[in-house]
Design a protein around this nucleic acid. Structure first.
Lengths: 251, 251
DNA sequence: GCTAAAAGGTCTTGTGGACTGACCTTTTAC
DNA sequence: GTAAAAGGTCAGTCCACAAGACCTTTTAGC
């Protein structure tokens, strides 16, 4: 049975998505998610043009907005480009206050949903994983342990998560997981891999290993439990950041 | 921790969403989902203008596309409008073949995902429901039993589902569920409440009651199981329709 | 040190989609 | 018979985006 919420739900005002808005969101997400760490450079404008399938003026406008937000800094000349600012969290503190706090409740709900979905993903992976699915997980685990830079660690995190999603044998699940991540990151332009990353690293490492074991052993309930708790930790981390922002809020 | 899929995932080509496309999708979804049953009339163009927040030419273009697809039929004069055609399934059989079959695998995955998500919703509702959440479910159940027209039955279905979602106390979950429904409906412009609806009605009725009992009793695992099976039935129904379409496929 | 390449910065032009608003035509309830 | 309620049509305007050329700044490499 297909269930709807009535005409009122389907016939809401449409959201006219501007190309510039879209590109701005994409770049902001990529930065917030850690695809581009502080000090790193975004692809050249002409490259972004190709990657994103939009014209250069559009890319430029989007980058200009990021610069206005204090998130990136443009340098000219050879080897120039848009560089992620070292402390773009503080720079955009005002933006956070403006855009984030009014939607506090919404993000609490998003975190909750993400925990539930990732639990579902883990349980499904534990049910459906085939022997050959486990190899990538093990690789990502060892890569995580031997990671020396934040970049490597993040790449390993990402690879592990992808491996779990792949074990569900349903690409749509990976898509959903990524959509949720995007929606959360969009609302939280704060560095997830900044201060306090060390202790997080340790806790996350244990979580990864335990999650792997549950999936490998084919124990859906345990996998679900571990994954949910794991993502609750992330939620707490960002709640801490938010609390800091709130505390320093201008009157 | 927030996990990404690497820059390649975030920096994909953007989708330029045309307003006309968006409106067409909305209307098609509303019809496919049963918000407007065969013989019924869509809101007047000038009303849709207000509902959807777009100009009249945009609405007109979208309606014209639906007409070209054979989904609606426009009548002029007082009490005119765009009427859903009685047998728009057959009329759009060609469109189904063109748009649907190449993406067969994708929809199999979407059905799978929907089953999983609805299971998650049911389990969460069973965990979090409060006594006052049960009243709307009971109401929807009795409305479902006493429904005499497809419209009433569908309204009851919808109400019951909404009640379950509400019991999770997380509006984002309801949003996710609706998004999934939309994505599925968009791909399946075939009437979900047409032939074979009778036996479906009976099976669905039993499922609803059992689901209610599991949620009321606070048994997440049972609720999840019932809900998942319930939505698998829907999936089978649509697979049947597809199989028919496939069988009559022109060489 | 020169030079050329690689980047950002600027501009013009063209195009298509969407909004505004008015008006025409058909049907039908009263 | 008439007015209202609907679809059908049209012209004008605006704006975002695309395409492309060109300038300016920096620096790697010789």
């Amino acid at each position: 049975m297909l269930l709807g919420d009535g005409p009122t739900a389907s016939l809401r005002p449409v959201r006219v998505t501007s190309a510039v808005d879209e590109v701005t969101d994409r770049l902001l997400t990529a930065i917030a998610v850690g695809d581009f760490l502080p000090g790193e450079r975004l692809p050249a404008e002409r490259d972004l043009t190709g990657l994103l399938g939009v014209s250069r003026p559009t890319v430029r406008e989007a980058v200009a907005r990021l610069q206005a937000l204090g998130v990136v800094e443009s340098r000219r000349g050879r080897n120039g480009g848009a560089f992620v600012r070292d402390s773009w969290t503080e720079s955009s503190g005002a933006a956070v206050r403006r855009t984030l706090l009014p939607r506090w409740a919404e993000f609490e709900q998003l975190f909750d949903l993400r925990g539930l979905v990732e639990g579902m993903v883990a349980a499904t992976a534990a049910r459906r994983r085939r022997p050959e699915d486990l190899e990538p997980m093990r690789e990502a685990l060892s890569a995580h342990l031997s990671a020396s830079t934040p970049r490597e660690e993040q790449a390993a995190d990402s690879a592990f998560h992808r491996a779990i999603c792949a074990a569900t044998h349903n690409p749509q699940i990976a898509q959903l997981s990524r959509d949720l991540l995007t929606r959360i990151s969009l609302g939280f332009p704060v560095e997830p891999w900044g201060r306090g990353e060390r202790s997080h690293h340790e806790r996350a490492g244990h979580g990864h290993t335990a999650l792997y074991e549950a999936v490998a052993a084919g124990e859906p309930e345990r996998a679900e439990e571990i994954a949910r708790e794991h993502f609750m930790i992330s939620a707490e981390m960002i709640r801490d950041v938010l609390a800091r922002v709130r505390a320093t809020q201008a009157p």
